[in-house]
Simulated assay, not measured.
Amino acid sequence: MSTRHVLLGLLASGPSHGYDLKRRHDERFPQARPLAYGQVYTTLQRLVRDGLAAVEGTESEGGPERTTYRATADGEAELARWAAEVAPPAPFVANEIFAKVVVAILTGGDPAAYLRAQRAAHMARMRELTAVKTATGADLATVLSADYAVNHLDADLRWMSTTADRLTHLTAEVDRA
């Protein structure tokens, strides 16, 4: 996820200061890693440097000084370009689960036991996400994010099932090598 583009997207609704952008990010992307304040302000400085955002003003109102930022016309054009850009599918996906299964096969470990334990963890996470989706008052961003995560977990589970079915063949293949 591109932090600069997400912040530009949040600025598209109108000028805002860093604190508010961080709060809105964390609300709108509830399943994403929360942004650190430092990351927000560093990204805003880069957006200003690159002409994609501008400082609207600074105020303190008895508290800490807050700088308000707005998207520029170039920033809006960049956001539109990014939003329309099709994300390329990864040619190969290598994740930690895949790596652990391969290492277990190569080292004579127990990949079947690992897959069973990982499957249980995935199922538990899917139940948590389903509860989040069906909770009273769940907002659209939360539901969409949970749906996305559930579908990825489901894909992992299908891969685990296929791999578990192939373990005898895969282990024999490694033993022959």
Rank of each mutant, 00 (worst) to 15 (best):
A104L: 06
A87C: 04
V86I: 05
E128R: 09
V48S: 09
D74C: 08
T142R: 03
V103Q: 04
A77H: 13
R127H: 08
L115F: 04
P111E: 00
K133V: 07
E61L: 07
W82Y: 04
A121G: 05
D154Q: 15
L106N: 12
A124T: 12
V102L: 03
A155V: 09
S145N: 13
F92Y: 00
D154S: 15
R81E: 15
V48W: 05
H152F: 10
L140S: 08
T134G: 11
A112N: 03
D74R: 06
T134M: 04
K133M: 13
A73L: 14
A149K: 05
K100Y: 14
A141S: 13
V101S: 02
D154W: 10
T107L: 05
A117Y: 02
A149P: 01
K100I: 13
A90P: 10
A155D: 09
A120S: 15
Y114F: 05
A71F: 03
T58E: 13
T72C: 12
Y69C: 00
T136V: 14
Y69V: 09
V86C: 07
A53V: 08
E96D: 04
K133F: 06
A84Y: 12
W82S: 08
V143P: 00
A149L: 13
A94S: 03
G75R: 09
N151W: 13
V103Y: 01
L106D: 14
S145H: 13
A113E: 06
G62Y: 11
T67N: 05
E61S: 04
R127N: 04
A124S: 11
V102H: 03
V132C: 13
G62T: 08
P64K: 09
T136M: 13
F98R: 03
E65K: 13
A104H: 06
L157R: 02
A131W: 12
P88C: 15
A87R: 01
A53N: 05
G63Y: 15
I105H: 05
A121I: 01
N151T: 14
A131M: 10
D74M: 02
A90L: 10
A120H: 15
I97M: 12
R66Q: 01
P89R: 11
G109M: 07
A71V: 14
V55A: 05
T136S: 14
V150I: 07
A117T: 12
V93E: 01
P88V: 15
G57T: 06
T67K: 02
D139H: 15
G137C: 00
D110K: 04
A149F: 05
L157A: 10
N95T: 02
A54S: 03
E61D: 11
S60V: 03
